[in-house]
Design a protein around this nucleic acid. Structure first.
Length: 205
DNA sequence: TGAATGATTTACT
DNA sequence: GTAAATCATTCAA
């Protein structure tokens, strides 16, 4: 299997978010190799998107990597304890990114369980953006990493075709009309999709 | 320099 | 259902 090339990331952010479902996320660390099938992702299209960190063209040390070329990792820290992992997409100068919200564990499940401090069979292993970063040991060190570089221990592989459903994004109620947009993509058959607002997903306004 | 605040998770009631 | 945990980043002064 070959890691996904830059051309995968260098497309409109909604296409990348949709196509990310079913792809494989791999992280090789000294403790071992972990991988999983991406089952949930969200598109963020700053500077217009009020829900995006890059809204209004806000260019800071944190958002800087989103203004660079596609195929790099945007990793940020929230709520004082959780890391979130994004794919930088589209083109240099356009701060667009795809938040990876959930994966289905494939390899290194025991290592993930150890990092998470729960049983390997639990879906809580990787069914949320903060949880999967903990299980995959993704943190500040991964910020700005080129996912297409042969030397990068963190990368994406092609994966089996997947069903894809859409919904509004999670946790961005403050974003006004942008909160209603169907920018969240997920595999409706996966048990590892994040549990937030299960009922809300069916809510069609 | 200091205060406010999250693209969340977890443990409670 | 609600609330606490906990701190990097941001913005005002």
């Amino acid at each position: 299997m070959k890691r996904l090339p830059r051309s995968f990331y260098a497309r409109p952010v909604l296409e990348v978010a949709r196509d990310a479902i079913g792809k494989l996320l791999v992280h090789e660390t000294p403790e071992g190799r972990v991988s999983g099938r991406i089952v949930e992702a969200e598109a963020y299209s700053g500077p217009e998107d009020r829900a995006a960190h890059s809204y209004g063209g806000r260019r800071t040390a944190r958002t800087e990597v989103m203004f660079g070329p596609p195929g790099h990792a945007y990793v940020f820290f929230v709520y004082g304890m959780h890391w979130n992992f994004n794919l930088v997409t589209t083109a240099a100068g356009l701060p667009h990114a795809v938040l990876i919200r959930a994966v289905e564990p494939l390899e290194g499940i025991e290592l993930m369980a150890e990092r998470r401090g729960i049983a390997a069979a639990r879906r809580e292993l990787t069914n949320g953006p903060g949880k999967l970063c903990r299980a995959f040991a993704i943190d500040r060190a991964a910020y700005g990493r080129d996912l297409t570089s042969p030397e990068s221990p963190l990368y994406l592989l092609d994966g089996p075709a997947s069903k894809v459903a859409r919904s509004p994004r999670i946790g961005v109620d403050y974003a006004g009309p942008w909160a209603a947009r169907l920018y969240r993509f997920y595999d409706p058959d996966s048990r590892y999709v994040s549990p937030f607002r299960r009922a809300g997903v069916a809510r069609v306004k």
